[in-house]
Design a protein around this nucleic acid. Structure first.
Length: 949
RNA sequence: GGGCGAGUGGCGGAAUUGGUAUACGCGUUGGACUUAAAAUCCAAUGGUUGAAUAAACCUUGAGGGUUCAAGUCCCUCCUCGCCCACCA
């Protein structure tokens, strides 16, 4: 008999499939499409270990089932190959990442093929190929053109080991995502000008859409908590006793963004130049009556550029388009995107440049930014609990809050200054880790008025209030918020209870209840009051509903060489200018020394010949942006490229991609927040622009558990404890056994602890399938071909069971069903022997077809042995027939008083009364009933009878 | 601290959503085959009492409840995992 030898048959079939193009997808196929794949890999020098195998076997099984069921199944493959390991390797050895990555990919090719994964290798992509990152740069351009890519100087997370900044999503418990071990240091903050993508623009719609996704629940809740929406109110608290400043309502103040208006021009029409800034901009005031003249002057002299002017509470920017149209735009600090887009199109500097220039201008700050310091000065707070407003007995501002200095009265100034400095020195991470420590803070000396009861309440500063969330100021309700409670106790501030509930009087409780100490609102329920008081405050103009998000914009610039260059040229005159699409890609220059330049820039900054170029707008001197893009940018759209991977005219064709999107099933075991949020953001952005029909990229998402070493520790490249699948194949167990073991040992979402016995166990099962099939092939003709009802029933039960379990992605129970089926075949063999017959042939063919997605090689061999010349992997899936599942008898469990006493075999034709009668007649049951009266009888059809005595 | 999820044999894990708890596999034990071993095949395998393939009782983290009937539903508590975390 032919022996089962995976070492022989696996390479044979891999070659055959490749020659026959079995898994090559026809994008124009008439068949229904099905796309599934696991998150693509970073190709490191170490290759994959068994932990990675699960990630690609899952979609392999899913696409194989669909292919067998008549779909055009597509399992694409690619490489996420930008990133630090290749660059660090280059720094160490001098080998260019362009070269080392290609070498690493070679090894991966060998491993992937050996696993029998049905990937379409003709559509392979690599994010570091200029033909790929050309389109990554195009994505950047689209975001930039739409005001969703912008530069801003602000304190950013900085990893000293990576020598680059990090996005919020890449910070894990205060450490870098690549360096989060116990020995690794905490990351710090550096003040840098960086590129951001405005992902917050999509926060709301992504959050709303999350619930409807067919994704692993834990990932959905991670996404939701990361976006972190809280719906609340902004309330204004008036400041008492603040020195009122001279804010001339009659005059207007301007900062001139344009330099072609002279001092004389201004004075001629009655204005006064108050100051010339360091950057050469004029600061001007005008009496109200000359404003019209001034506007005329602006309109006549304006070139593409900008002004800003101050009128009442608004700051208005004025632009002129190339066509000569004058555009006025009021600055709304909560929605800057329109202004950003206008700046990008018309202004001689980006919006962030303008903002930072203005922020550094004392005259402007005094006139405009501190406008709130007048008689009507107020502090805005954000709260989700306006119902507790009467209990707000003090206010707390973040130490960085812009109003702190002006609120500090003379006697408190020194202490405030010391505290502010101490806060700055502490990184935000430290501040968060101090959470359980004692609260600290300083009184400003000023008071605000609680708009609910007109009480004067003290204004403090404390580092437990964060400038980055809400308004950077809170109303403190010590009776109902634990943090405020701690603070009040520490500094002896009053605690006023306003919600009565089960909590005791000195307890801090945030539960709902009945209002007390709340004036006209007393005896209302807190949730009722919440709505009422917001309406009342809004009517007085001191409150407005507001939604806040924890998620911040995505910081994408990296000070490293090995990434996609940001397609921007900085020009002194035109500011940051996009590299025109026809000039993409901006190719990474080949260099000798990969070390970051030591400042806050990448090695690219040292390549003068590359950096110095022409400004695409004015033709003058320009310098290329030397930051590269976060690797996550490349992976935010690769699924779209998969749908049209060889297009050299576009990133993807809208029609073709829309036909193949969304990804029917995506899976991975990592990146539950960052990558998936970014990918959703990109997809939604391109949907909005009309480049893709679907809003969401991934219809279904399976977040599978990890495969860990037997002691529960993680397999890792650095520890070198991961087993190379090639090694197991070399031992003779074969890829099929590895695949089967991993799919069988636990449900997909659960972690698997690597069990040495698992592979031999799976191999044993495959051998059983092999053996019984070979025995059948060598069996004698029976001569008679009568129906074997045992075989037929077992076969149809198996088809039904395995199909159902696969449909629900319950691979472990699907395989259990296959094993039961196989055991039934052995039982039949032991009982009646094995002969050539159509029922045996059918049973074995079904077994092979149902097992094929898990073990593609052995099944292909057996399929051939059973007499077929085509492949089992395309269009071969059995369908069960209910008529074979019907039994003549039914097993009924008989309970007495709810306890199982026996089971009886009854005819399926019997009705309820007959079955109950048979149950009572049963000798064993009769013994239990004895002389007792039966009080109640429960009958569950086809299942059980329960006699209650 | 908050949110979500989970606790079932020696182990990984099943259980049609309230109806025979422990499917399937690993491990272990016995038998067949073999000079012997491996491999393979057959069988047994939750616990306690018991000579027993008799019988009974107990058993799904702990305790209580609903129900004819609870691993499954409700309440209280314990433990573990993941995510978020001074986010107002």
């Amino acid at each position: 008999m032919k022996r089962y030898n995976p070492k022989e048959i696996e390479p044979k079939w891999q070659k055959k499939w490749e020659d026959d193009k079995t898994y090559i997808v026809d994008f124009n196929s008439e068949k229904p499409k099905y796309v599934a794949f696991g998150m693509f890999n970073y190709p490191s020098g170490a290759g994959i270990h068994v932990g990675h195998v699960r990630n690609f076997t899952i979609p392999d099984v899913i696409t194989r089932v669909k292919r067998q069921q008549g779909h055009e199944s597509y399992q694409p493959v690619g490489w996420d190959s930008f990133g630090l390991p290749a660059e660090n390797y280059a720094i160490k050895t001098g080998v260019a990442p362009q070269v080392s990555i290609k070498q690493a990919i070679e090894k991966y090719h060998e491993q992937y093929r050996a696993m029998g994964w049905a990937m379409d290798w003709t559509k392979e992509i690599d994010t570091t190929e200029p033909e790929y990152y050309r389109w990554t740069q195009w994505c950047f351009s689209k975001l930039f053109e739409n005001g969703l890519a912008y530069q801003q100087e602000s304190p950013q997370w900085w990893c000293d080991q990576c020598k680059t900044v990090l996005a919020d999503e890449q910070v894990i418990a205060g450490k870098c995502w690549r360096h989060d071990g116990a020995d690794d240091p905490m990351i710090t903050k550096k003040n840098l000008k960086q590129w951001f993508f405005k992902i917050t623009e999509f926060a709301d719609e992504m959050l709303d859409a999350t619930d409807d996704l067919d994704w692993t629940q834990s990932v959905k809740s991670s996404q939701k908590s990361w976006i972190g929406r809280s719906v609340g109110v902004e309330i204004e608290f008036a400041i008492v006793n603040s020195s009122s400043r001279n804010k001339s309502q009659e005059a207007r103040s301007y900062v001139m963004g344009q330099k072609n208006i002279s001092k004389e021009d201004i004075e001629e029409i009655g204005g006064k130049v108050e100051k010339v800034t360091e950057t050469g901009h004029l600061c001007v005031t005008f009496p109200q009556e000359f404003v019209e003249k001034f506007e005329e002057l602006i309109t006549s002299k304006i070139e593409p550029g900008f002004w800003n002017e101050y009128i009442g509470d608004d700051i208005v920017f004025i632009f002129k388009s190339k066509e000569g149209e004058v555009i006025r735009q009021v600055w709304d600090p909560t929605n800057e995107s329109e202004l950003v887009a206008l700046c990008n199109n018309y202004a001689d500097a980006s919006f962030t440049d303008i903002r930072s220039m203005l922020a550094g201008n004392d005259w402007y700050k005094d006139r405009i930014m501190n406008q709130d310091q007048g008689e009507n000065a107020f502090i805005k707070v954000f709260t989700t609990r306006p119902d507790t407003l009467f209990g707000a007995t003090f206010m707390v501002l973040a130490p960085e809050h812009p109003m702190v200095d002006s609120l500090a009265i003379e006697s408190q100034k020194a202490e405030i200054k010391t505290y502010k400095e101490a806060t700055v020195r502490k990184s935000e991470v430290q501040r968060q880790q101090d959470a359980d420590k004692e609260k600290t803070g300083v009184f400003t000396g000023s008071y605000a008025i609680n708009p609910a009861n007109n009480e004067q309440i003290p204004i403090w500063i404390a580092d437990y209030v964060l400038m980055g969330y809400g308004t950077g100021a809170i109303m403190a309700v010590p009776a109902h918020d634990e943090r405020d409670n701690d603070f009040a106790k520490k500094f002896n501030l009053p605690i006023l209870r306003v919600v009565q509930n089960d909590a005791s009087d000195d307890e801090c409780s945030h539960d709902e209840g009945v209002m007390i100490n709340s004036g006209e609102y007393n005896s209302m329920n807190s949730d009722q009051m919440r709505e009422k008081i917001v309406d009342d405050l809004a009517a007085r103009g001191v409150a407005q509903e507001k939604v806040n998000y924890k998620m911040r914009d995505w910081l994408i610039s990296r000070q490293r060489y090995w990434g996609a260059p940001i397609p921007i040229i900085h020009c002194e005159k035109d500011g940051p200018v996009l590299v025109p699409e026809v000039e993409l890609p901006v190719v990474l220059p080949e260099i000798e020394d990969y070390r970051p330049t030591g400042g806050n820039t990448s090695a690219l900054a040292g390549v003068e010949s590359w950096v110095n170029t022409k400004c695409p707008k004015c033709g003058g001197l320009g310098r290329r942006e030397t930051d590269t893009m976060d690797g996550y940018v490349c992976s935010s759209w690769y699924f779209l490229r998969y749908m049209d991977p060889t297009n050299n005219q576009k990133a993807w064709d809208e029609k073709q991609a829309s036909k193949w999107m969304p990804v029917d099933c995506y899976n991975g075991g990592d990146h539950a927040t960052a990558h998936l949020l970014y990918a959703r953001f990109f997809n939604r952005f391109f949907h909005k622009l009309g480049y893709i029909e679907t809003k969401e990229p991934f219809k279904k998402m399976i977040f599978h558990g990890k495969i860990k070493a037997g002691d529960g520790s993680a397999f890792s490249k650095s520890k070198g404890n991961g087993v190379d699948p090639l090694q197991i194949i070399e031992q003779g167990y074969g890829a099929d056994a590895i695949r089967l073991y991993q799919m069988f040992s636990a449900p997909l979402e659960l972690d698997i602890l690597w069990d040495e016995q698992g592979i031999p166990g799976a191999f044993r099962y495959l051998s059983r399938v092999w053996t019984i099939t070979q025995e059948y092939i060598e069996a004698n003709e029976s001569g008679v071909d009568i129906n074997n009802s045992n075989l037929l029933k077992a076969t149809h039960v198996a088809i039904k069971k395995v199909s159902e379990e696969l449909n629900g992605d319950r691979f472990n129970t699907a395989i259990a069903g296959l094993m039961e089926f196989t055991n039934a075949l052995y039982k039949e063999k032991t009982a009646n022997g094995i002969q050539k017959s159509k029922d045996w042939q059918f049973a074995l063919e079904c077994l092979v077809q149902l097992l094929a997605p898990f073990a593609p090689h052995i099944t292909e061999e057996l399929w051939q042995d059973l007499g077929h010349t085509d492949t089992v992997h395309v269009d071969h899936w059995p369908i069960h027939d209910e008529k074979y599942l019907i039994s003549e008898t039914v097993k009924i469990v008989v309970q007495v008083n709810g306890k199982v006493r026996t089971a009886i075999e009854v005819s399926a034709e019997n009705n309820e009364a007959q079955i109950i009668e048979q149950a009572k007649q049963n000798t064993k049951v009769a013994e239990y009933i004895a002389d007792n009266q039966i009080k109640k009888t429960i009958y569950v059809p086809n299942k059980l009878v329960n006699l209650v005595i």
